[in-house]
Nucleic acid binder design. Sequence first.
DNA 1: AAAAAAT
Length: 714
Amino acid sequence: MPSKSSSRPTKGPKNTKADGSKKQRWSAAERAARGHGPRRGGGRPRSEVEATGPGRAPRSVDRWDDRRSTDRAGAGRRDDREERRPHRDERQERRPYRDDRDERRPERSERRDGDRGRADRFDRGDRRDDRFERRDRDDRFERRERDDRRDRFERRDRDDRFERRDRDDRFERRDRDDRFGRRDRDERRDERGGDDRDHHRRASRPAADQHGSRRFESRPHRFAERSRADDRRERREDRPEWQQLTGYEGGDADQMEWTPTAAAEVDPGTAVVVEGPGFADLGLPSALVNALAAQQITTPFPIQAATIPDALAGRDVLGRGQTGSGKTLGFGLPMLSRLAGGARGTTRGVVLVPTRELAMQVADVLSPLAGTLGLSVVLVAGGMAYGPQLKAFDRGVDVVVATPGRLIDLMDQGAADLTAVEITVLDEADHMADLGFLPDVRRVLDTVPAGGQRLLFSATLDRGVGTVVREYLDDPVTHEVDSGQATVSTMAHHVFQVKPAEKQSITAEVANREGRTVVFVRTQRGADRVASQLREAGVMAGALHGGLTQGARSRILGAFKAGTVPVLVATDVAARGIHVDEVSLVLQVDPPMGPKDYLHRAGRTARAGGEGQVVTLALPHQRREVARLVKQAGVKTMAVDVSADDERVYRATGARKPSRPAIEDRDYEALIAPPVKVRSSRRPGGRGQGGPRGRGPSRGGWSRSGRGRAHEGA
DNA sequence: AAAAAAT
């Protein structure tokens, strides 16, 4: 039989790609380390796949119905905490089509190439996923426990806009009650406190101890990360150790100049003049006080003065302070101070934040301060190399600043041990308590020992955190340092009523003003589109959203901070917490989803006592919605009807008619491309011209940096 | 709709 010699068995997993090359697969041991069972056979017979139509996944609605009924059937599932995330194979059983992914891949990439237009020319390498992969990503979420979230959105679509809020509240409450009823909750509490905890811990991290984190040396995807990391290697040596440790990609990682951020950078000129008690009077150790003084930070902001004493005393704290009012130090200083008293090398502090950029920023602020106390900080976030993060845990790290996904990843792998954590912080706590984040946050809070200190901070801390507070906080004290104002007094608000045909040119006029501007849009594609329209109009603008690779995100944000790209077109990924100096105007091209989003977006300007303007564009059909949002955000502003080339717009915002020629893609790329290497040493196998990664020269930033390198090396 | 993990 000729087929005897075939390397491919007729049954079982397919181990080669279409081109015959070997697939990168986790070994059995690696699968086991992740808690997966042995790999199963490859889904349904091919003929069946074709009958359904390749590449056509069943409509998500069907899958949802499927999931829901399954969940209802297994109503007690919540009781087994370690089983809360269904086993992978289990999930695949529920949704048999997923095993066909490998067969669909070729078609997907065809579609991608055809579908993506000019953006592809320069963006391909930086763009992590196209629409189709994004759909996949959504599938991933669906597989998890996101029923409630979807539920909510489906209903929301049908809802009348004006009733939306109330209904959402109602649904959230109902969902919570259904799923985490009181009895259930109490049991969960008991488990956390009891001896059971160790059992759960081990169960949720199977085989962790046998393997140790070394096993990840062979993880296939790390090679991809590493080749990108190659570009950074030399610079990395010059960076502080914690950045080397974390594989940090912020600002300087991709060699856009990185300026330390947030409160640590408050300009001494604008900082409050010394009056009243200083940080020392709040009970902070002198090492910290001196470190702060060295950064010209001498007088606590109100939120800091309010929260630090209670947090130092070990109490659970809910802190609400206006955007840009120094919340990071509000939780960071007391956390570090309290940890300074204990043994080093065990993870005792965790800070959870909703976005990677914010994680970097918080790590940036806390790391030097921690250093003065002999504490170490690690940044744990997705999109960055695993190695440094794993290494940090191997060596022992005191404080973890993390986005939830990667932290849970590392927990599951047994790399991150959070069982000795004493202080847990939720930054942007209301957002972290949102339906989208809650399951992940809950997992972390369930892992961390019960009874530890919990600090919840946000500019919009509202009842949305109620569940978290009830379940995880003990007799919390609340500090609201708002002076009753939703937004800071140095912020000016405008609502412009625009005609659809003129919206684009008005956007360009406003964005063309002097100074740094953040433009907010609703969707990732919208961000790409608006940014490219602005460049078309001669305004240097770049898009920032979660659909970009982390490297691309870092570069554009770095370019924005450096001022080379003065206009940042962003999704709400940049709405919260991100601090960039001297953003003088926030332009909302799409209205925010809710009043809280309005406040957070607006809060990118007028930070730390500075001034800023907030402009919201409203199309005719958005008029009422925007009026409501603005009012609920506590802002008193009347909408003004404006047209393109309107003197009033110019006067109010400093807008200018764009007059420069369109910005070529390659000129834009040059600004945000990975910077030219300075040293001349040539790395074998590194990224060079016509490099090993099969990318064409069409990716301009790439060939450009290649040329630059060649010059410098010569 | 966005965000957050990824072979």
